[in-house]
Design a protein around this nucleic acid. Structure first.
Lengths: 368, 368
DNA sequence: CTGTTAGCGCGTTCAT
DNA sequence: ATGAACGCGCTAACAG
């Protein structure tokens, strides 16, 4: 409810100097317990919160985390955000949202990144599906700026931390499931090949085929765009291929699977009876599709949580927790180019996906 | 690319004082055009951006906008955000995202609001579906703090600005459409009655019925929770009601409509042949449902855009644009309680919805 | 038109 | 264990 009380005010009410108040604010151990209590009480009795802006300025750090999201991935964002905000809520940090237009994929992202850096607003960056900008981010990373990629770029700069999901295994399991249902002609609709995930999923598909001793039929592999429209187009192509229609399709995204579903239905065919379908992502809606979509679940919520936790750890290394203040001083004393403080070597976390079997793959009778 | 250059640096390179640099930064008219050009050039040649934190601190204002979103509305958020971020991108402001757990509906929201206020981090608040916290927000508003509600609370505090959609008309049109298809027994699955939108939509439904001279059958109106599960439950109830099954259902949210759809299908009935269905919202997925869902489109993107534009205008009144700097000074000179600067009377904007006719209502043959 | 002088609210040295 | 003084990067008064 309160408005704009400052450290100063608290200091007066408590009959101490602002320095002392500042100390309890920063949880310094060297404050008289009684004084601390008194100050603490006055603080929340007055509803006092320190100004993030001023604290950041003075302390040379910031309590803001920048989250970069490209609009083209919006359908996946809610779940991710849920994980992220949950962690942020428990921390002293706030989230600044930077949205990037997918249009000029490369340029836009970098531009925003530069701006973020230059305004020195945020203490770190969480880049959600940065795509082509990965290399730009890696550079930052090398300069010691905390960055975590939410993605699956397995080959790019190894010196950047990321959290992703095990795409290849996920795709493998999906395909194998289809194989186990007796399917032999299994098509695959890929995502754009410029994304590593598309490759990974394709490889998983191949793995399963190989394992089953089935030769890859190039005609059954089409490249889509991760969007419903692409799914429709590829499916149409698949269905009109004379004579040798697939009996199952492993689609590299739920969104494309929706497109496939409608195309199949419009052609008078039925899922899963005529064609079995498995998607990828398990976005919230997929369980409500008709028929419910079997899909590979990416643990978005967990990934979000994990990535932000990692970033927070990079920014505030846990440091042995005990009497650490004495050494904390000197924040880049007078060096011109910031001395890389990078306290952790890059961390790569790959969470596992798992197959969610529903009606669209034919393994389940539409019960319940 | 650059790192941490300051106004100071620019000033030196340009051979002027920081004050002058600051002036061009703030687009003051009183700077020598040549000097301005030179400085401008040096600035972006050095990739300089002023520190938001410092600028905010010094100027007594902030370049951050707080966006409050409750997690229970995530499915609708992406579209809204798209509109919001697009506007933000074109402005000197950044977006701080505050996520609120829906659990303690009331308490959580207010808590966050207080914190936002206290940290003085943001220049204004955009509250997306604040629900029960509306009154708390109104209070802020009265104190002169810029607030805009993204919502449809028609009855609550009139002194708070909001942008919403014309729910009643939307519902009316949907119901009328069903009526025009010849349906007489039209059920309605409502949202929770604690929300104004639920009432509005219900009223629209009644309007259409009344207009058609049909008496309202209370048994055909059920209260859901806006979620798929609620849709399923209500639909089940509707279908098992002996003897007098409705031939059409107007569902107050797409999410609930998905639940209805699956329940109907599971009962061996078909949409739209046995039961016609119309949803509400037109969330991105609805066009890909099977059958494609007829629904009332809420212009989320436009509403997002509109609401943030309104907020920005409240924060920076357009002021006649010409030579306004002279008077801009004195930001609450020495008053203790901030003198309400509130430059605009509350604005209420209601955008219109529109019926998107697809397959689920039976008006269109599954062509294309 | 431009430079000079003060702070904004806080963290962080030094002292004590 | 505590206080005084200085500065973070910038804007805002005041003089020239």
């Amino acid at each position: 409810m309160a408005g704009k009380i400052t450290i100063q005010d608290i200091a007066q009410l408590a009959g101490v100097s602002k320095t002392t108040v500042s100390r309890v604010l920063n949880e310094r151990p060297d404050v008289n317990p009684e004084t601390r209590e008194r100050i603490l009480q006055i603080m929340d009795q007055q509803g006092f919160f320190p100004s993030l802006a001023a604290a950041g300025l003075a302390g040379g750090r910031s309590r803001l985390i920048g989250a970069l999201v490209s609009v083209s991935h919006w359908p996946l964002i809610p779940e991710i955000m849920k994980g992220i905000t949950e962690v942020i809520d428990q921390s002293p940090y706030e989230l600044v949202l930077y949205s990037v237009n997918a249009s000029n994929d490369k340029k836009d992202f970098s531009e925003v990144i530069d701006r973020i850096l230059a305004t020195k607003l945020t203490a770190g960056i969480l880049a959600i599906y940065p795509g082509q900008s990965a290399s730009h981010l890696a550079e930052l990373c090398r300069e010691g700026f905390p960055v975590v990629m939410f993605d699956d770029q397995v080959n790019p700069p190894e010196d950047i931390s990321w959290v992703g999901a095990d795409q290849r295994t996920g795709a493998y399991e999906a395909t194998r499931h289809l194989l186990q249902q007796g399917h032999r002609r299994i098509a695959h609709i890929q995502g754009p090949l410029k994304y590593q995930v598309s490759l990974d999923r394709y490889n998983g598909y191949c793995d399963a085929l190989t394992e089953a001793g089935i030769e890859l039929d190039p005609e059954l592999v089409l490249q889509g765009d991760f969007m419903p429209t692409g799914g429709k187009e590829c499916t149409t192509q698949l269905l009109t291929a004379l004579g040798k229609r697939p009996t199952a399709i492993f689609v590299a995204s739920d969104l494309m699977a929706y497109g496939a579903l409608s195309t199949i239905t419009e052609c008078g065919l039925r899922v899963p009876d005529d064609i079995a379908l498995i998607g990828y992502d398990d976005i919230p809606f997929s369980m409500h599709a008709q028929p419910a979509l079997t899909t590979v679940r990416q643990p978005f919520y967990e990934m979000g949580k994990c990535s932000i936790e990692l970033l927070l750890r990079m920014i505030d290394p846990p440091e042995t927790k005990v009497r650490s203040w004495n050494h904390k001083s000197a924040l880049r004393p007078q060096s011109d180019i910031a001395a890389p403080v990078l306290p952790m070597s890059p961390v790569h976390i790959k969470l596992s996906t798992n197959l969610v079997v529903r009606a669209s793959c034919g393994a389940i009778q539409p019960v319940q």
